[in-house]
Amino acid sequence: MFAVAPLPNIPFPVRRPCPQGICICGHRALLESGTGDIRILRLTLMEEKRLIDRLEAVCDFDDLQKMLHLMNEQLGIRLEITPGYTEVRSVRGLRITFQEQLGLCRKTQKKIPAAIRRCLSDKPKILYRLLDSFDLFRGL
């Protein structure tokens, strides 16, 4: 295990940095620079597990929107879920993209969309409502 030196200027527990050369998240650079959005460092492994469990337990479209808003507000994670370029026949047809962010681990960038896809495949009503929100004729 890696030992992390205590950080006197950060008042919350911080995620352990990824081993060098394995991840390109920039965790160490974010800690060393002292500038930038450090909210993402709150996402420890335990908190990440709670977030994944919560995303899988989303009950409706409004709850999904609330979770996306909270992720942006509390962690600075900007996530966009849109229909793919071609037609959407399944959950895999959705594009789930992150805005580039220093400190966001590549494993986390794979786990969050996978949890959302699992939720949407288990609850297709949320998927249909998501697709309806991109309706071509909604303004008419």
Score class of each variant (00 low, 15 high):
136 L>E: 06
70 L>Q: 12
113 P>M: 01
89 R>F: 11
51 L>D: 03
90 S>K: 02
56 E>C: 10
59 C>A: 15
43 L>M: 14
105 C>A: 04
32 E>F: 04
87 E>D: 07
8 P>H: 07
133 S>V: 01
6 P>N: 02
113 P>D: 07
48 E>A: 14
95 R>G: 04
31 L>A: 01
56 E>P: 01
11 P>V: 12
87 E>W: 08
112 I>E: 00
70 L>E: 07
79 L>R: 09
78 R>S: 10
10 I>C: 08
124 P>Y: 06
56 E>M: 09
4 V>E: 04
69 H>G: 04
12 F>W: 12
56 E>H: 11
93 G>H: 05
56 E>V: 01
85 Y>H: 03
66 K>I: 05
103 G>W: 13
4 V>Q: 12
86 T>R: 03
79 L>V: 05
58 V>R: 02
19 P>F: 15
106 R>H: 12
34 G>T: 00
101 Q>H: 13
51 L>G: 05
36 G>P: 08
110 K>P: 00
101 Q>L: 15
17 P>D: 06
123 K>V: 08
19 P>D: 15
3 A>L: 08
32 E>R: 10
18 C>T: 04
78 R>P: 00
51 L>W: 06
85 Y>P: 02
27 H>Q: 15
94 L>F: 03
28 R>V: 15
128 Y>K: 02
78 R>W: 14
130 L>R: 07
86 T>M: 14
60 D>Y: 08
24 I>T: 11
94 L>V: 05
9 N>S: 12
113 P>V: 01
74 Q>W: 09
7 L>M: 13
91 V>Q: 06
77 I>M: 10
3 A>C: 01
93 G>L: 05
28 R>C: 12
60 D>R: 07
4 V>C: 09
50 R>L: 14
121 S>N: 14
94 L>M: 12
75 L>G: 00
102 L>C: 11
82 T>Y: 07
63 D>F: 01
128 Y>G: 00
101 Q>I: 07
111 K>S: 09
99 Q>V: 05
2 F>H: 09
28 R>F: 12
90 S>Y: 01
53 D>Q: 07
87 E>Y: 07
76 G>I: 02
54 R>L: 06
82 T>I: 08
5 A>P: 00
77 I>L: 12
108 T>F: 13
86 T>P: 02
140 L>G: 01
118 R>P: 01
11 P>M: 03
10 I>E: 08
43 L>T: 01
31 L>K: 09
65 Q>L: 13
21 G>C: 13
41 L>N: 01
94 L>H: 00
81 I>K: 13
6 P>D: 10
131 L>C: 07
7 L>K: 09
41 L>T: 00
6 P>W: 09
102 L>H: 05
6 P>M: 00
111 K>D: 10
102 L>E: 07
28 R>L: 13
17 P>F: 12
50 R>C: 10
1 M>P: 14
38 I>S: 02
11 P>R: 06
38 I>M: 11
135 D>G: 05
34 G>R: 02
86 T>F: 13
133 S>C: 02
